[in-house]
Amino acid sequence: MLFDLDGTLLDHDRAAAEAIVRAFPDADAAWLVPRWTDLGEAAIERYLAGELDFAGQRRARIGTLARELGLGTWDDARADAWFAGYTTLYEAAWRPYPDAVPAVEALAAEGLRLGVITNGDVRQQRSKLVGIGLAGRLPHLTASSEVGWAKPAPEIFRSACAGLGLAPGAVAYVGDRLLTDAQGAAAAGLTGIWLDRSDGPAQGAPDVVRITGLDALPRLIAGMA
């Protein structure tokens, strides 16, 4: 059983929102939080595409935001110094979703081989698992920065399965993004499970299984055995 990390196990959006509001307490939070989210998603896409390195995507995010806040143009040194402080705030806000630890514990108790597939820097993603107390339960970490492929590329899913010593058809993968996670996994031959935490109406996704919380996983996986 493999998991996505941000948005599935770790509440990244809440942590990032808390950190950016603390970093700019005088800004309008109603504008600041969604704008920071948009800048982050755009920068990460460029990082995964190889247009920016990890430091570069960070500089792009804060550089744009600083200009929009009327703080002028920041050089790399200022951007890096700011991001170091922001990272401290972000890490302090790391929390697992309430259903994450119980679900992982239940699956571990069943003797399943467990791991994570994540698009991101392996060092930071490993630190997140340690920070939310799941590193010991999820020993197999496959990160795009190490393997050279990013979700939804089938190679990253198959690399993770090889790390478990299992064929893709014997592995299930759960993530919060329908296309990138669940359908990407299904296209690579895994059982794709879409974690849809939204309050909206259910959307059709015939090639994957949809759940609304990780607490559904143990029974779901037991039914697949």
Rank of each mutant, 00 (worst) to 15 (best):
Ala135Asp: 15
Gly136Phe: 04
Gly136Leu: 07
Gly136Ser: 03
Leu138Gly: 01
Leu138Val: 03
His140Trp: 02
His140Glu: 06
His140Pro: 01
Leu141His: 05
Thr142Arg: 08
Thr142Glu: 13
Thr142Ile: 11
Thr142Asn: 12
Ala143His: 02
Ala143Ile: 01
Ser145Cys: 08
Glu146Phe: 00
Glu146Trp: 00
Glu146Arg: 01
Gly148Ser: 06
Trp149His: 15
Trp149Lys: 08
Trp149Thr: 07
Ala150Gln: 06
Lys151Asp: 04
Lys151Tyr: 05
Lys151Glu: 07
Pro152Val: 12
Ala153Leu: 10
Ala153Gln: 15
Ala153Tyr: 05
Pro154Ile: 11
Pro154Thr: 08
Pro154Val: 08
Glu155Ser: 05
Glu155Asp: 10
Glu155Gly: 05
Phe157Thr: 08
Phe157Glu: 12
Arg158Leu: 11
Arg158Trp: 04
Arg158Thr: 09
Arg158Gln: 15
Ser159Glu: 14
Ser159Arg: 06
Ser159Thr: 08
Ala160Thr: 01
Cys161Tyr: 01
Cys161Gln: 03
Cys161Leu: 05
Ala162Ile: 00
Gly163Val: 00
Gly163Arg: 06
Leu164Thr: 00
Leu164Gln: 05
Leu166Met: 12
Ala167Lys: 09
Ala167Trp: 03
Ala167Asp: 15
Ala167Thr: 10
Pro168Phe: 12
Gly169Cys: 12
Gly169Ala: 13
Gly169His: 08
Ala170Arg: 12
Ala170Lys: 07
Ala172Met: 06
Ala172Gln: 04
Tyr173Ser: 09
Val174Gly: 09
Val174Glu: 05
Gly175Pro: 04
Gly175Asp: 04
Asp176Ala: 07
Asp176Lys: 05
Asp176Cys: 01
Asp176Trp: 04
Asp176Arg: 02
Asp176Val: 00
Asp176Ser: 03
Arg177Cys: 09
Arg177Val: 10
Leu179Pro: 00
Leu179Val: 14
Thr180Ser: 15
Asp181Leu: 08
Ala182Arg: 01
Gln183Ala: 14
Gln183Asp: 13
Gly184Ser: 14
Gly184Glu: 14
Ala185Ser: 13
Ala185Trp: 09
Ala185Lys: 13
Ala186Ile: 03
Ala187Asn: 14
Ala187Gln: 13
Ala188Arg: 10
